[in-house]
Design a protein around this nucleic acid. Sequence first.
DNA 1: CGCATACGCGCC
DNA 2: AAACGGCGCGTTTGCG
Length: 496
Amino acid sequence: MIGFNLKEKIKELKKKNKPIPAEIFDLGIAFWLINPDEKEYTGEYLVPKYLHKEFDPSTSSGQGFSEEVLEELKKYAEDKLAEFEMKHVFYDLEMPLLKVLADMEINGIGLNKKKLADLDKQISKKISELVQKIYKEAGEIFNINSPKQLSDILFNKLNISIKGLKKTSTGAISTNIETLEALKNEHEIIGLILEYREIFKLQSTYIKPFQELVAKDGRIHTNYLQTGTVTGRLSSENPNMQNIPGGTELSDKFRGCFEAEKGYEFISFDYSQIELRVLASLSGDPKMIDAFKRDLDIHKMTAAQVNNVPLDKVTPEMRSFAKTLNFGVVYGMGFVAFAKASGLPAAEAKKFIAEYFDDFKEIKKWQEKVKEEARKNCFVSNLNGRRRWLLNIISSSQFLASQSEREAINMPVQSLAADILKISMVKVYDYLVKRGWNNDQVRMLLTIHDELLFEVKSDIIKKVRADISEIMESAFKLSVPLKVSVETGKTWGEIK
DNA sequence: CGCATACGCGCC
DNA sequence: AAACGGCGCGTTTGCG
């Protein structure tokens, strides 16, 4: 089978109980591997661009192209995949993943519509109460959702001081959370706005649209985009199931509306600190490797290192800075951003970062090596050959070149972590099929970057828990162990 | 009126 | 002096 968006074709075959062809060549995915920041991965876009031929909707294939054109495009892609050493990642990872994603999308996740409607009512009441309070504090009615109008009320009418406040790209005073948080003690209205923002977002982005998106089977069926990122991660749309809020009272109530079918439970498997483990492994940094081998609290360990104190002298505050730093390093954070994120003065922040790289010398070296390679090749790749082009890394614009450098040092880490999850998905799928459990006793539902969520018949949950943990922890060999944490619940709200 | 952009914010 | 990587989506606003 050759073509575009073969996931949809596989879904059709599955729904009709027809066999899936053994040989699958998805042209969009092939071109995505060759260049992950192409504008589109459709035939309409790729055929004219790479074959210099017109898109012709009148052809017999019904796809707008003849079989010959598809073959020609396949030939082009095959050659490039071979040249770039991407055949393995294409044939052994991305193509096998298609059927896994197809099943996940067909499965969907159960959403209790009535529970959600009740939550909607509760939220609506809270919102109108907050709106009235905000109008009263402002002394007039305005559109709270308009940053422009809100800014006018706060900084012109209520005369809240604007000194030192961040501006947006167009020069207006920002009204984002970070800015408002700093003004919390300046006026009663700020706290109300913050509260309003949180629950309005919950309602407008999640509660309202999700009620519309519940299918006839009572479930939400997302669409996974296999060509949606430049790093190899998956993305999710209509709805995006990878940014469901959690951790607050109301957002956990929203998560609580996702329910396992009767007789089933949710079980989630979460790779613990996978990006930092990948970084430790890629860089070969002895201290970080040792910490993971001994299963230490990595943020605490980092805190001890950069503060030059023993582990038992690490304060919660020191650990918190170290955590920000650990994540920041993966992303190429500068001292200004670290200062903001940590609340430290810029000079202190600078010292912290210097100390970090002095302690974890191999990480610094590795990052320099990656940047050099990127400058030499104008691309970076990960252990599996996945590649990202970084044409701006030799730009004369300092800003653009630096941005490419940050993208360069992030890519091998984020993309290998993404591959490890994809490898797990395929392996777990094969395991479930072999057992005869797939889509029946066990359903793979969601993939959220470092996490897999399943719905499992309660009577086999112990076995499944042990087996999937084992599969995931042994999915890829790093020089540090992979660790998976597991949680179960009757609703998604009971998890984590 | 639809569409693109700016802004803001949810997640890993 | 500033610049944290990767996404999708809702609302407002200005433009044609």
